[in-house]
């Protein structure tokens, strides 16, 4: 019974994450800096991490990027490689920070480290892809954008976790 409920909640969050991924990839207008985006999908990553554990969180991230990119039509393209690497690295860092330092950092702080890691990982990947270190010129702008979006996502995830606690998931 318990595991059925867990399966259901996890797949629900996965579906929500995929929808956010597609909406963000296809419909939201791009921010002025190329490569920068809101990162709404990290909200579901955080929720899974808080409600369950790092295993479910990693599974969630991998499944979301794979299924999401298949649906968005970018599977196994450079776009997929970028989002996969960024999401995985940021999930790993968020897991570490959440497991070791939660309490000192609020969810907003955890999300902030994740957002920054996401951008840095993609930036490093971009340097290999383009083969020119000039890509690093984006770094200050990416960090500046990661601050508001990271805090926003963390706060949003915090609210959602509070609400779901009332549902006794």
């Amino acid at each position: 019974m318990k595991s059925t409920r867990k399966l259901m909640v996890l797949s629900f969050l996965l579906a929500a994450g995929i929808v956010l991924y597609i909406v963000e990839a296809l419909y939201l207008p791009s921010l002025p800096v190329p490569g920068a985006k809101l990162g709404l999908t990290s909200i579901t990553t955080l929720i899974v991490l808080v409600l369950y554990s790092w295993r479910e969180c990693l599974l969630h991230v991998v499944a979301r990027t794979v299924i999401g990119s298949v649906l968005a039509g970018t599977f196994l393209t450079p776009v997929f490689l970028f989002s996969f690497t960024g999401a995985l690295m940021s999930a790993l860092v968020m897991i570490l920070v959440y497991e070791k330092l939660y309490g000192k950092f609020s969810l907003a702080g955890v999300s902030l480290t994740g957002a920054t890691t996401h951008n840095m990982a993609q930036l490093i990947l971009a340097v290999f892809f383009v083969g020119h270190p000039g890509v690093f010129f984006q770094m200050p702008f990416l960090i500046l954008i990661a601050i508001p979006t990271g805090v926003f996502n963390g706060v949003a995830a915090g609210y959602l976790v509070q609400r779901t606690a009332a549902l006794s998931i």
């Binding site: 950092f105 609020s106 702080g109 990661a146 805090v151 915090g158």
Partner: peptide, 18 residues
């Protein structure tokens, strides 16, 4: 909402950006 460490982190990131 934000803890002290969050604010330190934000300041650190601002510094990093700069």
């Amino acid at each position: 909402m934000l803890t002290r460490y969050d604010k330190v982190l934000i300041c650190f990131l601002l510094f990093l950006a700069l």
